[in-house]
Write a protein that binds this DNA or RNA. Structure first.
Lengths: 176, 176
DNA sequence: GTCTATAAGCGGATAGAC
DNA sequence: GTCTATCCGCTTATAGAC
């Protein structure tokens, strides 16, 4: 599952073969099918892995006493990951974008949406605790800014974009 | 080229077959290869098509006398396309994200980056005309917000996100 | 549970008639 | 310049030995 999450993030779902993931996990290709009946099952596992990552991050942030500090630390974490974002984009965002282009699709696209929804809800909770007006609108702005800066940093292969936008978001959080 | 641009936007590069595009253009599959030697040539053509679209939009906006009005009209245009964005994302953004995951890649990913660079430069020019400080930082914020709201609207299949974020961006432009 | 060999099908690309 | 038929490689998935 860890190998699947990493390889799928780097190569995208469609360009990743079972053989790629098997090689990364150091198991024979055919062996994978003992644990995952189809490729989509593996993609779902990769999504779950990213979900766990997200959960660990917010759990860690929750230990901070002040909601504003939690949000600023979240932004700091994004900026810290700038090299990865500039190379491969936000794992959840790029995955959601790719899966969203599938027609019917076994619900994997909705699963990716749920991950982003989880992040949005957590951020909204922080704004709510700060008793700011329109907390869900603010959450949309913050998470949207993250997705946008990740995409631009990735498209232009420029990690500095993450730093610059991170500074702007931090100032914005302070001014709210 | 028009068929390629549309189908690739809807299905993504990897899930689009030559046969898909040929069907949309109402020509036999093999025929495509008379005009495009490889599938990547066709993708490049789709990118160029989106580039032309972008050029037409900014040329139209340039007819407005006030740079601030140009930017607000740009945002209005984004919101008007909310249904398309919620279903398939921003054409340039999703294409750039997908192509960015290719390793070496014949330079198609850089081509997608150039399109976004063009938009960024045009937006920066407007901020510069308004004599605002840090015009390229502001451009990054505006275009980033667009990419972010498109991705979220797409992932959550919710066009209202485009409307809400559009309102916020318009107010932000007015307050600058 | 682990691994090798292989089947089945799809999709990019080409040959060659018209 | 248009179209049909087809080749070939790759990838998903399975069969079956160990």
């Amino acid at each position: 599952m860890a190998a699947a999450a990493e390889v799928v993030h780097r190569q995208g779902v469609e360009r990743t073969t079972i053989a790629d993931i098997a090689r990364a996990a150091d198991v024979p290709t055919g062996n994978v099918y003992y644990y995952f009946k189809t490729k989509d099952d593996l993609v779902a596992a990769a999504l779950a892995e990213h979900g766990g990552q997200l959960e660990r991050i917010t759990a860690e942030l929750d230990r901070l006493p002040d909601p504003r500090e939690r949000l600023k630390a979240l932004v700091r974490g994004w900026v810290d990951q700038r090299e990865l974002a500039a190379r491969y984009g936000c794992p959840t965002g790029t995955l959601a974008a790719e899966l969203g282009k599938r027609t019917p699709d076994g619900g994997l696209d909705a699963e990716a949406g749920k991950l982003l929804r989880t992040l949005l809800d957590w951020v909204e909770g922080q704004f709510r605790e700060l008793e700011l007006p329109d907390p869900d609108g603010l959450a949309l702005a913050l998470v949207g800014a993250y997705q946008g800066m990740s995409l631009l940093a990735n498209a232009l292969r420029d990690p500095d974009i993450m730093t610059r936008e991170g500074n702007r978001l931090t100032a914005w959080l302070d001014a709210l």
